[in-house]
Computed example of a mutant assay.
Amino acid sequence: MGLRGTPARQARRLLGSTLLACALLGAQTAHAAAGAPPTTVLKVVAQEGTEPKFIPAGIGRVVGLCVDLFRAIERIEPGLIFVGDQQWLPLLRAHSELASHQHDALCAVQRTDQRARQYIFLDPPLFQLRYQLIARASDPAVITSWDDVRKLGAHGVVLTNRGYVTPEMLARIGGMQVDSSATSPVINLQKLVAGRGRFFLHRAPGMQGFIERAGVAGKVKILPTVMLTSDVYMAMGTHVDPAVRLRVQHAIELLEKNGEMARLLKKWD
């Protein structure tokens, strides 16, 4: 008979939690003895539908640009530990839970007026997103500006994702047919292939890899014109100790100066 739900299983879980707590306490003691800042655990999540920031890599494993970035910050600031980057959460919920202080940081998010009232954005920006249109492989359209899309009228529907910043960005540009009903980029790729939209506005880095992992390579193509750009930042909860935020910001500044951030971008582009 298995041990699921039995006292033995519960005891093992309790022992695991106790060992983790002891390990963290031991790390804090060692840091304190060395005169270093105490260990600080920062809770994060893997945001669904945000490749290449977070990419599924088999059962129970998440890789990607932001996972590597968390580890790089930990190397620079050994007293900081990011936990939770192996646990998926829908993007909208990830933002909501940062605002309600259920976790501590979000990696590589765009600054908006609403978000600036809810989070603390750390400078400098981590990197810049490049927005391009994806079309079906057989589509003859040549797009060099938003005017070219506008001229297509009802034949130029642009797919975007609900809960992302892109619908708001396109609303500001104006004059286009936009469908933002999909909840994930993969769904929009499927809609595009099925002819339920002319273009899908998505962002690089990592666009080609995303297309390949979605299984539509050869069915769609990335149009060359960069239609929009936007900086992304490390966002932290307003509840996080300002001294901790400064340590994260210092690490980001160093990663920019020593070229590590550029190397990570190249790895995941």
Rank of each mutant, 00 (worst) to 15 (best):
M1P: 13
A11K: 14
Q28G: 14
D147R: 14
R13P: 00
F200K: 01
I120S: 13
Q28L: 14
P140F: 00
E77F: 09
G163H: 03
I187C: 14
S230L: 13
L255R: 02
L15C: 06
V158M: 11
R115E: 05
G2I: 08
G259F: 09
H101T: 05
E97N: 12
F121R: 02
A235S: 08
G206W: 03
Q208Y: 06
P242D: 07
T6K: 12
D147Y: 11
Y233P: 03
G153P: 11
I81T: 12
G156E: 06
D148Y: 04
V226S: 03
K43D: 02
G218N: 05
Y233H: 02
W88T: 04
M176R: 03
E260H: 15
P205W: 05
K219T: 00
G218D: 04
A141N: 06
A214F: 02
G35R: 00
F127G: 02
V44R: 12
F199N: 02
V41C: 14
A105R: 04
V244R: 08
L65N: 06
K266H: 12
P124N: 05
L80G: 01
G5M: 09
L228Y: 09
V45S: 11
A154Q: 11
G156D: 10
P185M: 10
A11T: 06
G163P: 10
A116E: 11
S17M: 14
P125K: 06
V220W: 04
C107N: 04
L265D: 10
S181G: 08
L20H: 14
P185S: 04
Q128H: 12
A30H: 04
L106P: 00
V232C: 07
R4K: 14
A182F: 05
V248Y: 07
P224L: 04
L80V: 09
I134M: 15
A34Q: 14
G163M: 04
